[in-house]
Structure formats: structure tokens, C-alpha cells
Design a protein around this nucleic acid. Sequence first.
RNA 1: GCCCCCUUCGUCUAGUCAGGCCUAGGACACAGGCUUUUCAUGCCUGCGACACGGGUUCGAAUCCCGUAGGGGGUACCA
Length: 540
Amino acid sequence: MIVTRFAPSPTGYLHIGGARTALFCLLMARHNNGKFILRIEDTDQKRNTPTATQQVMEDLKWLGIEWDEGPDCGGPGAPYKQSERLEIYDKHINQLLDDGKAYYCWDTSEELAEMRDKAQAEKRSFIYPRPEKFPTREEADAAAAEGKPVIVRLCMPEGDIVVKDLVRGEVTFQAGEFSDFVIRKSDGFPTYHLACVVDDELMGVTHIFRGQEHLMNTPGHQALQDALGFSRPTYAHMSVTVSEGGGKLSKRERGKALAKAIKADLEIDREELAKIGEMSIEDFDEFLNGKITPDAPLVTAMAKHIELHLPEINVVDFKESGFLPEAVTNFVALLGWSSPDGQEIMPFEKLIENFDPTRFNKTNSLFDRKKLQAFNTEHMKMVDSDKLLGYFKDYLVLNELEMGKFDDDTLATLLKLCEGARNFEDVVNKSNFIMLKADTIEFDPNAVKKVLSKDGVAEILTEVKDRLNNLEAWEAEPIHKVIEVMCEEKQLGMGKVAQPIRVAIAGCMVSPAIDATLVMLGKDETIARIDHAIEFVKGL
RNA sequence: GCCCCCUUCGUCUAGUCAGGCCUAGGACACAGGCUUUUCAUGCCUGCGACACGGGUUCGAAUCCCGUAGGGGGUACCA
């Protein structure tokens, strides 16, 4: 059976690159009726953040990426948090030690740095000088008692190492390039390398899909597998998604964009913004100079305050921007991978059906938000209306929008009226008319200039109001008929009548179709708004 | 510095492993047009690429070598 795994370290929100890796692992498992495992790699105590695991799981679920085994649901390979598996790792490390395949050492970081500098000065790779005779356990214990940083290193083998990779073919690493690397840190925790290799074996992982940044680790992992008598999984080192400035898509991207915008705008009240970012004014300056980065939600809050649109990096950012998970997964799947049939827009099931691990490409890709928008537009039309309503409500709640107070029927109608919208942000913008009050509508200056200030608008509005007032059945068709008839009689284009109505009831030039909008508003509200607009026009 | 990977329209890519079917196909973006009561949607047209230099071959986007550019790694991070 094919078993894949996604193994994030809980250092913050799940970012889009991680989501892509997770997606491919899931696709591989589902396409082959295999198993997909979620494992938390929390062996670095300094970097872990307490809520990250929960957040990552939530983000994966939102995307529709569900695991068969994991920290929340357990499974035959439990536990699925590496910090809870320390004894297992120790057992394997001790075995390597006993077999003479690993050894203790306790160089200080200064000593190590010196050796590295020397290697670089001599224009060669740094190779840790393996001692002729390995220290005994007693000697290591004694050193530790003296406060020395005692660690364990694995003996790397002699010859060339070939990594067979689904994406890159056979990659050969020359003998003599390998340094004995650390498998247990001085705090007693295993390194990522050891924990990862042991867990993949014990959990029966058959296929490892990961970013190309791990390619250089693989010879070491293979050496570990050989030393421990493990089987060799199939590797695929995928291309990565890079940011527009070049380089890996990083979590700091949003902070950087925000700092840049703040620095560019001298009008901004920095003190107030620092308060929103929960920082002292000194820290705020540090932040602007790129020295520190506040937590993601604070960055978002500050950006919102100055009405800045930040590039989406974390999965939650996309959720907050009003994208559909189906669109995000579909789009991200097409970064570095292509469907055998050439199809691009696909529902999740089709992604699974079409998945083929031989169709990864080798080149890094840039994230194109505009194309995501196009995908989102398609998926808005594809998902069924109940599901869409659910997503819409989540979006409204997440953004704390007042529109969320409306009942399901109203929201569903709004969604229907806004068919063709690119994302939920568009839906909200277009639906703004429903949030207004007849006597407090403020008219968009641009709309005033282009529509309300034109000659004869007051007369047109008065006329159409009277005609609407006389209408018995307040439904789309008769309303449409009223406007149509009036246009014919007055020899006017539809726009000449419909646009003033639109501005009158929405305050701006954007709204859904006029007849449907009026139906939603109801007769009284419509008349009241038109009256208000007539007063306004007369006052111009 | 050292090691590894990559290079097709502005962007994502097909085609490269098995050289001719490629005067290089699609998608997004962009420009123009049509539809439309607004914004969108929808439809049509256009623009637009094999990084460079050498080979191999009857024939190269495809194979080989070199150059340049980009990315990654070089931790007691993962």
C-alpha cells in the first residue's frame, strides 16, 4: 500500500507552499487508495509555538486535506508528535552507537566555526574530522557532567551516494563530500534527520514528496536508512514556489510589504499603528527597519487599519481574502505539476483522479494572484449553492463584516445576484446596497459626477418613482417592464434611467441587476431611497 | 568559497526521457472588439517564448560540452 505523509514543524501558520506539498502527498495517497499521515515535527523546542499545530490542522481541513492518521485521530504509528517519541529515537541512536556507526563528540560552536572557516579559506567543503577512536559512553557522560555540549554524529559511508528521485532522476553525490552529521542534539532531542528517517520507517511511509530544499539532506537520510537496516522510500523533490522578489516564499513577506508601505507614507499615524500592532514605539521602529516581525494577526490588523492589501502567503490569508479552498488547491496543484489530459480547472475529485507523480516539472514557479482569481471565478460557478453559502458565511465571520447578520436566504440571494463575481470580496462590494439606510446614503462623488449631476435626473427619478409606486406586484418582471416602457416612451436608453436608480438606491454605480435589486429592497425602501436621492439632486 | 538543482510567451505550463507530427500548443495577464441598464460574467480577435555559444545529426526546444543567469544547501532549523 502507498503511504505518504505531510510533516510540518509547528512554527506558525501553514503557508501556501506547505499546503501545496501537503496536497500532493494527499493526492498521491488518494489516487492509489493509500494512506495519508499527518506528523508534527516539533523537535526544535525553541521554535515551536503552542497554537501552531491546531492552526495547521484547521488550515489543512479548510483546504479539504484530511489525514487518515495524525495527532488528533491517532493510528497504528502513534504518537504522531515527535516530541512524544523521544524514547523511540533514543533506542535507535543507541543502537547506532553500539554498532559503532555513530559516535559522541562535544566540540563547542566556536571550535566548529573555526573549522568551517578554515575549510572555506582552503576552498573545500567542510567535513567533520571523525576521531580514530570513538569516545566511550562513560567519557561522554563525564564531558556532559562538566557542561560540555555532548552530541551524537552518524558515520557517513565511503563511496558515492546516488539518490533516485521521481522528479530529478538519479542525482549523484561524490564521495568525500559528506560530513558526519548530528543525529542527537545536546538537549537530548534527535535532529530532524534522525527523527524523520525513523518515523518514516516505523509509520510505513513509502513515498516522500517534499521541497527541493531537502534534496541535499537525502544522502544523509539514505545513509541513516542503511545504517539502521531500513527500507528505502521513493523520493520526489518538488520544485518550489518562489515570491516575486525571488527566493523562497517566506512567512516574513507580509511584514516586509507592510513595513515598506508604512515607510512610503508619511501621513500615517505611527503611534496609533504601533498600538494596533501591540508594540512599543521603539519596537515599531525596529519592525520598520526589518529587525523584528510581529505575529501574523497583528500584521494583518495593521494592514487593515491603513487599508493596505497584503500579498497572501498563509492559507488563512486566502480564506480571509475571499477565495474558495477548491480554487486554491486547484491553482496550487498546477504549480509545478500538470494534468495528463491538459485540463486546468478541476474539482478536487478530478485532481485525485488525474494525479500522476511523473508529471512534476523541475522549475520553480512564481505565484500569480491574477490567475488564482480566474480559477476562483470558475470555482464560484462550480460549487453547489449550499456549500458556497457556507463559505460565504465563514468569510463574513472571519472578516467581522456586518453583512453577516443577514439570514441564509438573504445571503443566498445576494450570492445568486452576484454570479460571475471573482471572489467574496467582490460579492460584498456589489452587495453593499443592502447595508444602507434610506436617509443616510452618501453618494459616491464619482457617481454624482457621472450620473446624478446630469440634466433632468431629478425629473427622471420622480417619474420612475411614480410609476414604480403604482406597481401592484413588486417582482422583477413588472419592475423591468416599468423601466423598459418608460425608456421607450421617453426615447431614452436603458442606462439613462437604470443608472440614476442604481445610484439612488446603492449610492454608487455598482450593484446587481436593477430589477432584482429593487425586489430585494422592497417597495417602501426603494421609494424612500429614490426620494432621498431626488432631494439630494435638487440640492446640487 | 564549496556542493546540488533549474532555464520554453510578462506569468503558469505542454512538448524534452524514446530527435522529424513544433512555421512550438493551452491557460492567465495585456490590447482591441462583441454581448450587457452598472460592475462582473460570457464570446471573438490580436500580441507574445525554445537564455547564449559551440558541437552530434540528413534533421535539435528535444542529445553532448561550455558560458551566463536563477534557485537551493552549506546549523546542535526543519
